[in-house]
Every structure is written in structure tokens, then in C-alpha cells.
């Protein structure tokens, strides 16, 4: 075990892998974040013909291993090669990176639909009635009342989901994507030194810790009233003491 030697020799590889991991997570989460709000609204208020397929989609994604989903897309697309070549999509599915990203985006979309749905259902009915009462149009109502409150409710759960996806993105290494996990496996196969895994674990932990901290700060920015009242409480308590 040469803990220092591994990082001194292989730090460019670890860095490269970390960037790929962050990239996969960022794109996956962003695509899902764009798709999930309209889908969550459809899941709640859409016609039954739309609600039922959405429920099946969410249940399927949540009920099957991500590895199986990844193989279904990456290896499964090979079965339709002539068709995909005809429509010009084969170039997309041939790349393991694209298949991994597609899997992560589809996966995260399903989870985010459920999170946003929970947020939408958590908005107090009185707020919606008040918005109707002062004559807001549906669009204004969503933009100024429902969605801001939805995101305040959903924010912590969304943070958890992003961390889960970041961890799950290590699966990309199974289809030869050289993310942090992929690079680590490569380094281990060259050196048979367990420190490679220790460094990978450390880097994953650092990413998680930094992200959790940043997410808390962002939560404070989007729901200042919650933290403001806590500050006030603390000031009151301090006042009583002193």
C-alpha cells in the first residue's frame, strides 16, 4: 500500500475521472430538472391517458436496478442497429457515454417527478385560492405562487436526489466510461494497490460534502423566511439570557 505514491503518480487520471463524474451528474440532473416539472403537473392534473403511462414509467424506473436499465439501453440498442442507422441515431447509441447519460437522465427524471409532485401537493390550498381571488391568470399563479413554494418544499429532497445520482454515476464505469470509478478501476488493475480505492472514496466523500454545504447555502437563499425566523428566535433567546 503506497497511499501517497498513488496520488502523486496518478493525480491527473483521478482529476480527469472526477471531471467526467461531475459532468455526467450535472448533465443528467439538468436534463431531468427541465423535464420533470411539466411531467409532474401532467402526472397530477393531466388526462388519465397521460397519467397512467407516467405512473408506469416512474414505477418501472424505481423498481428496476439502474445497471439493468443501463444495459437495456446500451446493449439493447444494438438489437435495433439497422433501424437506428436508418434514422441516424446509431452514432448516439454507439457511444457508452451517451447511453450512460441517457440512463441517468431518464432515471433522475422519474425520481424528480415524484419529488416535484410531492412539492406541488404540499402547497397550501389557501394560497391557490388567494391567488385566484385576486384574479391571477393560471400562468401568473404558477409562476408567482405555486412553483416558488413547490421548490421550497422540494429543495432538500432534490439535493438528496442529486447526491444519489452522483453516486450512481459510478455505474458508467461498467460500460467502459472513464469516470472517477472507471479511472480508479484502471489504476487498481495496473497497481493492485488498495489505496486507489481509498482515494476514490475520499474524492466521492469530498464531492458529497462540498455539495451538501453549497446546497444548504442555496436553500437559505431560496427560503430566507425559514432561516430569518430562526435567527430572530436566536436573537430573542440571546436577549433573554443577556
Amino acid at each position: 500500500m503506497d497511499f501517497e505514491g498513488i496520488i502523486l503518480t496518478y493525480w491527473p487520471k483521478f482529476l480527469e475521472g472526477t471531471l467526467v463524474t461531475l459532468q455526467l451528474t450535472f448533465f443528467g440532473v439538468t436534463i431531468a430538472a427541465l423535464l420533470s416539472p411539466p411531467l409532474a403537473m401532467l402526472r397530477l392534473k393531466g388526462p388519465r391517458a397521460v397519467q397512467i403511462p407516467l405512473r408506469i414509467y416512474v414505477s418501472f424506473v424505481r423498481g428496476t436496478p439502474m445497471l439493468a436499465q443501463l444495459f437495456l439501453i446500451y446493449y439493447g440498442s444494438g438489437q435495433f442497429r439497422p433501424l437506428l442507422q436508418e434514422v441516424g441515431l446509431w452514432g448516439f447509441f454507439r457511444e457508452p457515454y451517451n447511453c450512460a447519460l441517457l440512463t441517468f437522465a431518464l432515471n433522475s427524471t422519474a425520481y424528480q417527478i415524484e419529488i416535484i409532485r410531492g412539492g406541488l401537493m404540499g402547497v397550501p390550498h389557501g394560497e391557490i385560492e388567494a391567488a385566484d381571488g385576486i384574479g391571477m391568470s393560471t400562468w401568473t399563479k404558477y409562476r408567482r405562487v405555486i412553483l416558488p413554494h413547490t421548490y421550497r418544499i422540494a429543495w432538500p429532497a432534490l439535493g438528496n436526489e442529486i447526491i444519489l445520482l452522483m453516486k450512481a454515476s459510478a455505474l458508467a464505469s461498467v460500460v467502459t466510461v472513464f469516470d472517477l470509478m472507471g479511472q480508479t478501476r484502471l489504476i487498481f488493475s495496473k497497481t493492485f494497490d488498495l489505496s486507489a480505492y481509498a482515494w476514490a472514496a475520499l474524492i466521492y466523500l469530498i464531492i458529497t460534502t462540498v455539495f451538501v454545504t453549497l446546497w444548504r447555502i442555496s436553500e437559505r437563499t431560496i427560503s430566507p423566511q425559514i432561516f430569518a425566523s430562526k435567527r430572530k428566535d436566536r436573537a430573542v433567546i440571546a436577549g433573554m439570557r443577556g
Partner: peptide, 30 residues
């Protein structure tokens, strides 16, 4: 999962087999 991979190796029908495997996992979850 691995037996599915073996089956795919012989039959060259990855989509069919992985889909069935997904369905089996799905049934277990439900």
C-alpha cells in the same frame, strides 16, 4: 443479471433479454 448477459451472448438478443430481466426485478419490487 449475469445469467442474462450469458443468454445475450448466445442469442444476440440483448433488448429482449434485458427487458425480461428488468420485468423480473420490477415484479420483485412491486
Amino acid at each position: 443479471m449475469r445469467m442474462t448477459k450469458v443468454a445475450v451472448g448466445y442469442t444476440k438478443l440483448p433488448f429482449d433479454f434485458y427487458l425480461v430481466t428488468c420485468l423480473i426485478y420490477w415484479l420483485m419490487s412491486i
